[in-house]
Write a protein that binds this DNA or RNA. Structure first.
Lengths: 235, 235
DNA sequence: CGCGGCTTTGATGTTCATCAAGTAAAGTGG
DNA sequence: CCACTTTACTTGATGAACATCAAAGCCGCG
């Protein structure tokens, strides 16, 4: 990995930043300027860790660019992937406000840019700006609810259903296309849907045999989306 | 069930309410009085629905007394239980602030009292009182994080591990005793851990045969908690 | 007393994890 | 640039884990 990742940049203009429309709406220009001066932008290369379980929480983090996975490692050493998400998600951990340390790790699946504001700065904004606070709670709730509902969708399906669901998830939510390059290994898909990697691979092969997808390494094309949706619903 | 359930009561003294220590800290006495006048307390008998998926969200709800389950019903008609929780949980749905309608249902597993404050009132408090907002975010995050982590704990275990985990959950988190009466049917445990009810029952029988628990209907005694913990960790 | 729902157990077949062995791909060092 | 190592992928075979079906017992309620 590369030194660049640990060198903060601060070359964005917060007043015109896309992120302003999400959480930083309703800030006075003066506050935006303060956020802008306080914030630090970090770049991460594909594969790099953004933060690890147990690290102390210093920043409120927003994904500005790229793709990340939130995960934890069980005592036995197995990864559990909690969610995979695109900008402009509020990727700071779900416990930024009630704990001192991250309970989950975050890493970059594609080169990513994370906008970081000191957590104390955010807390101060909450204290002083009610509209900001209300906005933040909404974003926060949306993110948490997405994670919870993803877990329920996975839990109710069997192997084939889960696999189909994940393919549709990437196609519909992440890439908005039926042709895409998977950002994760087969094993990571297994860690996301709580199945063994051998069986995920087997299911991919079956989908290929049945003419539902084309799969060449990480390059995926969904051919028969109807069948895939049926499998996802049935499974 | 009974008319009482739909008749709000308002006989508590909010200034001395236990709940004040949770979210309503940092309110001026005047605001507490306003909360007190605005709030409504609803009682629910065991088995009653507190609210259903799709209903519009009018109240911010706090569980003051009792025990509740948060759940949803899949299109196929199966229940998925998201969490089972005691006071003083912030049981209002995780989407109270970013959606108009509940995405999950809530019902009483024991006779329960829910303290309800109009959501607009809460939003107004967030706007006007930064400390309240910060406190609320903390509670909110804690609740959401509990649900997410429960899901991960369940997903990483097999049938026996999940069953042991749930028994320990009731013993440690809900009843603080090794002898307790289950608040749910075998089928509801199955709906919580995403397994079939027949297999949950079978696992109970095995635990009984192996001298790990005594189980007479819903009356449970954990005899060998060490073994149960090993099964929960291993499984 | 009878009915319906929850519980229990057994039998059966499906689904899934695991192990093993082989292939392809990608990084590493000479 | 090639040989080497490692990591990801793939497939088959096997047994364990789990769902499902069915039948019977139990209990509470009308």
């Amino acid at each position: 990995m590369v030194a660049e990742a640990n060198t903060p940049k601060n070359n964005c203009k917060c007043l015109s930043c896309e992120l302003r429309n999400l959480v930083f709406t309703n800030l006075a220009e003066d506050d935006v300027r303060r956020v802008c001066e306080s914030k630090e932008e970090f770049s991460y290369l594909k594969g790099e860790i953004i933060h690890s379980e147990g690290e102390s929480i210093k920043y409120f983090k927003y994904l500005k660019n790229g793709l990340v996975k939130l995960f934890r490692v069980t005592p036995e050493g197995n990864e559990q992937i909690i969610t995979i998400t695109r900008p402009f998600e509020f990727v700071s951990n779900t416990n930024a406000f009630h704990e001192e340390r991250y309970s989950y790790s975050l890493s970059a699946l594609e080169d990513s840019i994370v906008c970081c504001v000191h957590i104390e700065f955010i807390k101060d904004l909450i204290l002083r700006n009610g509209k900001f606070a209300l906005n933040l709670i909404s974003s926060y709730a949306r993110t948490a609810e997405g994670i919870i509902s993803l877990g329920l969708e996975i839990r109710k399906r069997n192997l084939a259903g889960r696999t189909a669901f994940v393919l549709l998830y990437f196609s519909n939510e992440i890439y908005h296309s039926r042709i895409f390059e998977l950002p994760v290994s087969r094993k990571e898909i297994a860690d996301l849907i709580s199945m063994s990697s051998a069986n995920v691979i087997r299911t991919f092969s079956e989908f290929r045999r049945d003419g539902i997808i084309r799969a060449n390494g990480r390059n995926i094309e969904i051919i028969d989306i109807n069948k895939l949706e049926v499998i996802s619903r049935r499974g």
